[in-house]
Design a protein around this nucleic acid. Structure first.
Lengths: 153, 153
DNA sequence: ATTGAAATTACCGTTGA
DNA sequence: TCAACGGTAATTTCAAT
């Protein structure tokens, strides 16, 4: 995990379709050298895949909310199952503290949010925060180079 | 925004490197037809780009936390500026409710989390939840097809 | 179907442990 | 001396048109 690999990760995070030749230009390496590094990053699980970035507003899903869920003691497993089955749940974090789960949900309309919350309320006490804007959104921290000359993996 | 476009979005979300030919097979369309659809999705801003998916643990960043920040009335702008400058902040949502901002942060060590929280505390009251696991994480809702034959864009 | 580009392979040189 | 890494070049595959 040297500085070059961090650069590659950051470059691929920003544009997952850069070619090895292009990456090579940017990190001052040959295409095969880059290919080998990327292959190892993929093999080690550091890179788990490549995906399109989607603007939910532009596809007709204008509403997103954060939902904190204080799950009833006996309903933990049931809750997890429910959450994983709900299409509208974009992310679900299991966290420390009284609110065991924090969900990010995306819906077409407030009425759909309503029915969603109804289902969650059967198994938990919820606290809902509507997302007004998202000034920061990325896959990994910026400027790792600063503290990083570590031996990893 | 017909059913085929939803399928394309979902396929590209899962694998941003699928070729037009491969996509064509999966949605029963010719490669050029798919290319044209994807081009329009990109042009309209529905697809904003393509990126690598990164496993933070595997790259030596094992700790992530959610931080709710109740920003002091007079410090809103200053807070936003600070947050956008912090490398460790992966996402920042501006939300309704007393906690104006919810951050997701990723760090190498608890001591780094400590210094990060120190800086936030100057401008806000914070509540920190350590992320134990993330059972769900995706870019867009699953199974949009259900309610969706809408005319969008 | 053709053209061009990118991925991959093979081979060799350098370096550092 | 050997293992790891990078460069060059040739080949093959494959995607875009």
């Amino acid at each position: 995990m040297d500085k070059t690999n961090w650069k590659l990760l950051k470059l691929l995070e920003g544009n997952g379709r850069l070619t090895y030749a292009e990456l090579g230009k940017l990190v001052h390496l040959s295409a095969p050298a880059v290919a080998e590094r990327v292959r190892k990053l993929e093999e080690s699980g550091a890179i788990t895949g490549y995906g399109a970035k989607i603007n939910l507003e532009k596809v007709g899903i204008p509403i997103t909310a954060l939902v904190e869920c204080q799950v009833y003691r006996t309903k933990e497993r049931e809750f997890k199952t429910l959450v994983m089955s709900l299409d509208e749940v974009i992310s679900c974090h299991n966290v420390t503290g009284p609110y065991a789960f924090v969900l990010r949900v995306a819906v077409r309309s407030m009425s759909l949010l309503d029915v969603l919350l109804e289902r969650l309320i059967d198994l938990s006490d919820t606290n809902t925060m509507m997302v007004l804007s998202t000034p920061v959104s990325r896959e990994m921290p910026a400027n790792i180079e600063k503290g990083a000359e570590l031996e990893l993996d």
